[in-house]
Design a protein around this nucleic acid. Structure first.
Length: 873
RNA sequence: GGGCGCAUAGCUCAGUUGGCUAGAGCGCUGCCCUUACAAGGCAGAUGUCGGGGGUUCGAGUCCCUCUGCGCCCA
C-alpha cells in the first residue's frame, strides 16, 4: 500500500504554476466528445470583450461557472466548457483604429499584404483608410495578443476550460454561422427589410435597437405655442419641449375623452410661424394632464410620434438628417416666402441651435405664450452615445421578436418559462422585457466592422435597388463580404452600375452574432456529431443586466432555428461593487486589477471570495474575504497533514467508535446538502455548508480523537479510518471551489499508480463526487439516526465548557483538570458516555462525574482544575 | 407608474417545508508558543431580526400594510 507523501511544511506557494502545468499536460479538463448527450454538461460561456483588460468582476462570475463545471465533471459528466473571445464590435473597432491609426472604408478594395502606418496619425482624420477585410485582419492581429493575456489570467484563476475549444466572434466560422442563420431567417420569412422611422445616433451614424436604449434625465423646457383655428375661432395652445420641430408638425392630438377638445376633433389649425395647415385628431396616448392636454405630432420627435404617425396614418415631414442637422433646403410644404425665410434661419443647424432660433421667431411673432417652463425629463440615448437620439427614416433589416405580434410574443414568453432560472426570480426580467417590446429587433447597423449582411440588390435601369428581391449567396460560399464579393450571375464591373448590382452596405448588430454563441460553440452545421452531443446546452451563465439583450436574442434565434430553448438553465451572476457599494467600472476609476489580487492572496483565496457571493446577488469587493479564503486553504493543508500523518489503517478496517460513526453520519448529511446546492447552481451554499462542517471538524473532532488515533488498538483504527474517509470526502467537496489546494493534498495520497483507500491515482477533479449513501453504509445506524443526541455534538459541547474554564482561569489548554461534573439529561449523558474517553483525553481530565437533571432543569458542566504544583518553581 | 429584490450584531452575511435560549466570519476584548496549523488556536462581549397589524400552541421565517435602499422596465 502507498504511504502518504506529506511535506514537512505544506505551503500554498507555487501551487498555481505546478498544477496548472499538470492539468494542461494531462488534459484533465478536455472534453470527451465520444460521450452521449445524457452524459454531457455543456456551458455557453460568455465571451468577454477583448478590448482592454479583464477586471475583478470577470474573475467573480467566471469562477461561479467554473465551480459548477467542476462539480458536474466530478458527477461523471463530460463537461463541454469552451472559452470565447468577443472581438467583434464597436469596442474592438475603436481600439484597432487608435492602436494602428487606421479607419475602415468598405468602398476601398482589399490590399494584399497590407501593413499599417509605422507611426499612427495623431488625429482621427489622419488615420489611413483601409478595406474592411484589411481592417478585420488587423483586428485579429491585435486581439490575438489580448486573448493570450486573457487566457493566461483565466488559467491562473483555475478555470477548468478546455482551451482547445476556444472560438472568437470575429472568426470566419462565427461569421459563417452568423450569415447562415440570417439567410435561413430570410428564407423562412423571419427577417425582413423595411424603410421606417428608426432611432438614430447622430454621432455613430447608425440606427440602434430598443435593447440599446437608455433613458437619461435631461433639462428641457415646455414651450407653449399658439396654433390658429382655420375657421378663425381663436387659438389652440399646445406645450412642447421641442419647438424646433414645429416645421415637421403634421397634426395636433388630444385624448378622445378630453372635453376641452371635443369640438375641435376633425377640424384643422395652422402652425405658428410657418402657417401650415394640420388636422386636430384624437388618440388615447395623448395625456390630458400634460401641459394643455393637446400635443403636436412631428415626424419625428419621439417614439410616441412614430406610433401616432403610424396609427393615424399621417404624412411624413422629416427635416432632421442622419447628421442630426436640419435640412439645408427649405422643405416643399412651406409655401409662403415668410415661412421659407423663417426656415432658412435655422437650416443646417443641430437641434440645440435650431431651438434657440425657433424660440426667437416664435417670440417675435407673439406666438410663444408666456416664458418657457424649465423641467427635467427622460430622454432616449444610445447606451454608448452622448447625444440624444433622433428618429430618422431609413431602410433597415429586422427580425421579429414579438414586439409586433402577440402570437410570437406569447411563444417567446413560453420559451422563457421553459428555462430554469438561477435564481428563479430573474425570470421576471425576461417576462418584463418581452412583455414591453414595441417593435421588432433591428439587426442592421451602419457601421463598418462586423459581420456584413450577406446580400446584394439588383439595380434597375435607373440605378435604383430592388430591395424586395435581395440576392443571397449559397451557404457554401459563406462568409461573404458583399462589398468585395460578387453575386452569382454578375461580374465585378457591374457593381453599382444601372442594370448591375449593389452590395448591402450594412453590417449586423453585434448581438446578431452573439445571439448564436451556442451554435458557434457547438459547431452547428459545421460539426454534426459535436452539435448533437452538446446542443441544446445545459447552462448559459451571464450577468443579469444583459437578459434583455444577449439572453433574449439567443432564445429568439434558437426558437426560429431549432424550435427549442438554447439551454436548460440560465445562471445569473451579480455585479462586483466596490467597498462603498458602487458598481465597479472603469469610468469611476474604482477598478481593482485581478493579477495583483491573485498574486497577493493566491487563486484559491480569490475563488473563495468569489464563491461566497450568492448567485444573482451583487457583492462588495472584499479583500478580507480573500484572507479568510487563504486561511481556509492553509487549514486544509494542515488538517490534511495531520489526518494523513497520524498513521494508516487497512483498506478493510472498520469504523467502530460511536463518535467516529456520528461524525461520518453528519458528513453524509453535509454531502446531501452540498449536492443539492450544486444541483441548483448554488455554489455559495455548498461552500458555506462545507466550510462550516470543516471548521467544526478541525476544532472539535480532530481534537477529540487525536490521542486515541495515535494508539494501535481497534479504537485507534476506527479513528484513522474515519479521518481518512472524512478527508477524502472533504477534499472532494472543496475541490470545485479550491482546486489548487485540494489537488495538492490529493496528490499526497497517491503516487500515480497506487492510491490510499478512498483516494484515486488521478486528479481530484476527475474523482467521483462524494456519495452520501456510501458514507451511511460506513456510519451504520449511529445514535443520532435513532433519534438520540449525537455523541460528537455532546462531547464537543463538554469539551468547549472545559476550554472555557481554562480560558477563564487564564491557563494553557494543556492544563490538567482534576475533575469534571456534567449535569445533563439522561439521553445526553448516555451519548456522552459513548465518547467520554476522548473528552478526557482532549481536555486532560482526570476524573468525571455525571448527574442527571430533569428535562428543562439547568444543565451544566463544573470544571475543577488541578492544582498547579510548584508553579514556576 | 409597473415589476423584482433587499432590510438580521459595529461591518459582510447565513438562517430550505414555521419549532428548543437567533448563528458564522471580520472587527473588538482576553488568554494560550498546544508536536497539524502563530500567516495559528481557544474563549468572550455585542441583536427593538426595518415599523405596524394578522394567522398560529409557536413567526426572523407565512399573510397584509407602511418605510427605506437597490435593480429592471415604462
Amino acid at each position: 500500500m502507498v504511504s502518504p507523501a506529506v511535506p514537512d511544511k505544506p505551503s500554498l506557494e507555487g501551487l498555481e504554476a505546478r498544477w496548472g502545468e499538470v492539468w494542461e499536460a494531462e488534459g484533465t479538463y478536455r472534453f470527451d466528445r465520444t460521450r452521449p448527450r445524457a452524459e454531457v454538461f455543456s456551458i455557453d460561456t460568455p465571451p468577454p470583450t477583448v478590448s482592454g483588460s479583464l477586471h475583478v468582476g470577470h474573475i467573480f462570475s467566471y469562477t461561479h461557472t467554473d465551480t459548477v463545471a467542476r462539480y458536474q465533471r466530478m458527477r461523471g459528466k463530460a463537461v463541454f466548457y469552451p472559452m470565447g473571445w468577443d472581438d467583434n464590435g464597436l469596442p474592438t473597432e475603436r481600439r484597432v483604429e487608435n492602436f494602428y491609426g487606421v479607419r475602415c472604408d468598405p468602398s476601398i478594395p482589399y490590399a494584399d499584404g497590407y501593413e499599417p502606418p509605422e507611426k499612427p496619425g495623431k488625429k482621427r482624420q489622419d488615420y489611413e483608410a483601409i478595406s474592411r477585410r484589411n481592417f478585420v485582419e488587423l483586428c485579429e492581429r491585435l486581439t490575438e495578443t489580448d486573448e493570450q493575456v486573457f487566457e493566461d489570467l483565466f488559467r491562473l484563476v483555475g478555470l477548468s476550460v478546455d482551451w482547445r475549444l476556444t472560438y472568437t466572434t470575429v472568426s470566419e466560422r462565427s461569421q459563417r454561422t452568423s450569415q447562415r442563420a440570417f439567410l435561413r431567417n430570410l428564407a423562412r420569412g423571419e427577417a425582413y427589410s423595411s424603410e421606417a422611422p428608426s432611432l438614430w445616433d447622430t454621432t455613430f451614424q447608425t440606427a440602434v435597437a430598443q435593447a440599446e436604449l437608455e433613458d437619461r434625465e435631461r433639462p428641457a423646457a415646455y414651450h407653449d405655442l399658439a396654433f390658429h383655428r382655420s375657421d378663425g375661432g381663436g387659438d389652440v395652445v399646445i406645450s412642447t419641449t421641442r419647438p424646433e420641430l414645429l416645421v415637421s408638425c403634421v397634426a395636433l392630438v388630444a385624448h378622445p375623452d378630453d372635453e376641452r377638445y371635443q369640438s375641435l376633433f376633425g377640424s384643422s389649425v395652422t402652425t405658428p410661424v410657418f402657417g401650415v395647415e394640420v388636422p386636430v385628431l384624437a388618440h388615447k396616448l395623448a395625456e390630458p394632464d400634460k401641459g394643455t392636454g393637446a400635443a403636436m405630432i412631428c415626424t419625428f420627435g419621439d417614439l410616441t410620434d412614430v406610433i401616432w404617425w403610424r396609427e393615424l396614418q399621417l404624412e411624413t415631414r422629416a427635416v432632421v438628417g442622419k447628421d442630426g442637422r436640419f435640412a439645408r433646403e427649405a422643405p416643399e410644404w412651406l409655401t409662403t416666402d415668410d415661412a421659407r425665410h423663417a426656415y432658412e434661419q435655422f437650416a443646417g443647424k443641430a437641434a440645440g441651435g435650431a431651438q434657440q432660433v425657433m424660440v426667437e421667431l416664435l417670440r417675435a411673432s407673439g406666438e410663444l405664450q408666456g416664458e418657457p417652463e424649465k423641467i427635467t425629463h427622460p430622454v432616449k440615448f444610445y447606451e454608448k452615445g452622448d447625444k440624444p437620439l433622433e428618429i430618422v427614416t431609413t431602410r433597415q433589416w429586422y427580425i421579429p421578436n414579438g414586439g409586433r405580434s402577440e402570437e410570437l410574443r406569447a411563444a417567446l414568453l413560453a420559451r422563457g418559462a421553459e428555462l430554469a432560472w438561477h435564481p428563479d426570480y430573474m425570470r421576471h426580467r425576461y417576462d418584463n422585457w418581452v412583455g414591453g417590446l414595441n417593435g421588432d429587433w433591428l439587426i442592421s447597423r451602419q457601421r463598418f466592422f462586423g459581420v456584413p449582411i450577406p446580400l446584394w440588390y439588383r439595380l434597375d435601369a435607373d440605378g435604383e435597388p430592388d430591395y424586395d428581391a435581395p440576392l443571397g449567396p449559397p451557404e457554401s460560399a459563406l462568409p461573404v463580404d458583399p462589398q468585395s464579393h460578387v453575386p452569382d450571375g454578375f461580374t465585378a464591373d457591374q457593381r453599382d452600375q444601372p442594370g448591375g448590382f449593389m452590395g448591402d452596405p450594412d453590417i449586423m448588430d453585434t448581438w446578431a452574432t452573439s445571439s448564436l454563441t451556442p451554435q458557434i460553440a457547438c459547431g452547428w452545421e459545421e460539426d454534426a456529431d459535436l452539435f448533437a452531443t452538446t446542443f441544446p446546452m445545459d447552462v448559459r451563465p451571464q450577468a443579469h443586466e444583459i437578459i434583455r439583450t444577449w439572453l433574449f436574442s439567443t432564445v429568439v434565434r434558437s426558437h426560429y432555428e431549432h424550435g427549442t430553448v438554447p439551454w436548460a438553465n440560465a445562471a445569473l451572476s451579480g455585479w462586483i461593487l466596490d467597498p462603498d457599494r458602487k458598481k465597479m467600472s472603469k469610468s469611476v476609476g474604482n477598478v481593482v486589477v485581478p493579477t495583483d489580487l491573485l498574486e497577493q492572496h493566491g487563486s484559491d483565496a480569490v475563488r473563495y471570495w468569489a464563491a461566497s457571493g450568492r448567485p444573482g446577488t451583487d457583492t462588495a469587493f472584499d479583500a478580507g474575504q480573500m484572507k479568510i479564503g487563504r486561511r481556509l486553504a492553509i487549514k486544509v493543508l494542515n488538517a490534511s497533514k495531520f489526518a494523513l500523518g497520524i498513521g494508516e489503517a487497512a483498506a478493510d478496517a472498520s469504523v467502530t467508535e460511536p463518535i467516529d460513526l456520528a461524525m461520518l453520519a453528519e458528513l453524509a448529511g453535509l454531502v446531501d446538502d452540498a449536492t443539492n446546492a450544486f444541483d441548483d447552481f448554488d455554489y455559495a451554499r455548498a461552500l458555506q455548508r462545507t466550510e462550516d462542517f470543516f471548521w467544526r471538524f478541525c476544532d472539535d473532532y480532530l481534537e477529540l480523537v487525536k490521542s486515541r488515533a495515535y494508539g494501535d488498538d481497534e479504537a485507534a483504527t476506527s479513528a484513522r479510518v474515519a479521518l481518512r474517509v472524512a478527508l477524502s470526502t472533504l477534499l472532494r467537496l472543496f475541490a470545485p471551489i479550491l482546486p489548487y489546494v485540494t489537488e495538492e493534498v490529493w496528490s499526497w495520497c497517491h503516487d500515480g499508480t497506487d492510491a490510499l483507500p478512498g483516494f484515486t491515482t488521478g486528479s481530484v477533479h476527475t474523482a467521483a463526487w462524494p456519495d452520501a449513501s456510501e458514507l451511511r453504509v460506513i456510519a451504520g445506524d449511529p445514535a443520532e439516526a435513532a433519534g438520540g443526541p449525537s455523541p460528537l455534538l455532546v462531547a464537543a459541547d463538554v469539551l468547549s465548557r472545559i476550554r472555557k474554564a481554562k480560558s477563564d482561569a487564564k491557563v494553557s489548554m494543556r492544563a490538567e483538570v482534576a475533575s469534571v461534573t456534567v449535569s445533563d439529561t439522561p439521553d445526553r449523558l448516555a451519548a456522552l458516555a459513548l465518547a467520554i474517553g476522548d473528552v478526557c483525553d482532549a481536555g486532560k481530565v482526570a476524573d468525571v462525574h455525571t448527574a442527571e437533571v430533569a428535562d428543562g432543569a439547568e444543565a451544566g458542566v463544573d470544571v475543577v482544575l488541578a492544582e498547579v504544583t510548584a508553579a514556576g518553581g
